[in-house]
Design a protein around this nucleic acid. Structure first.
Lengths: 126, 126
DNA sequence: TTCGGTTACTTGCAAATAACAAGTCACCAC
DNA sequence: GTGGTGACTTGTTATTTGCAAGTAACCGAA
């Protein structure tokens, strides 16, 4: 069950263009990836905590997104206990650098989408 | 060929949560929508011009995204000539308000994705 | 006046991706 | 040894994408 298309056999798929918008969307242009990043910013660290968000991300999608984010060097996965095996996910510097973009998206949503609100206590800022 | 799922029969699909990140991703959380917005920022106005970007957006996807952006009040479609019918697409204030988010995404891409570059002359800033 | 070209799309269909439910595996507590 | 939790994987169905082609309304030249 490989994620590959019929085109290339190795590596990830080719960038559509060198444009930074396009390249960024190649990585996080979908409905779920940024939500995972958001939750990591909010301090969630385990698979279970990440599953628990109000948007109800499916388990296979979460596993896939964590894998991709890890492959892109935006997230690290470290075991914090051997037995039973338990893992902690955290943003790398590259992942944390998305703060400005996330902040801009939050601001746009709050300003232009009626009915949006930050759940109490949720804030990306430290 | 409705975009609807089996769930609700009218209106657009329900927001996954009131979170501004999630609500924003409900609108532009895919690989193409922000590229269309980018091109509109760059001054492209016609369907043909928008089709012409290096990422090669499929025609049906472009038509769909313009429809959605228009439905969300982020883009206007105006005929600028009757015969033959020709249309001009432009960002509304709501669409233009994405400038900060787009800028943040560009900055992140340029800083963290090696090989990205702005094609000469391309810049979101006025 | 018919032929070709342009703009702005729509349609059909195979392929990829997502969603949902369920199952697996490794423990630990009782 | 039975039940529960955390971290996933697998199977199946539903939805979305990508590509090729088709349509419609003109305009301009031959």
């Amino acid at each position: 069950m490989k994620k590959q298309s019929l085109s290339k056999e190795k590596g990830r798929q080719a960038a559509r263009s060198p444009c930074p918008v396009s390249r960024t969307l190649d990585i996080l242009g979908d409905k779920w990836t940024l939500l995972v990043v958001r939750d990591l910013f909010l301090g969630k660290q385990t698979y279970g905590e990440l599953l628990d968000s109000p948007e109800r991300i499916p388990t296979n999608i979460l596993a896939d997104r964590l894998k991709r984010l890890t492959a892109h060097g935006m997230v690290t996965k470290q075991p914090y206990q051997q037995r039973p095996p338990r893992y902690r996910y955290q943003l790398t510097e590259k992942g944390q650098a998305l703060a400005a973009a996330l902040r801009a998206i939050i601001d746009w949503g709050l300003a232009w989408l009626p009915g949006t609100r930050l759940p109490p206590g949720q804030d990306v800022e430290k």
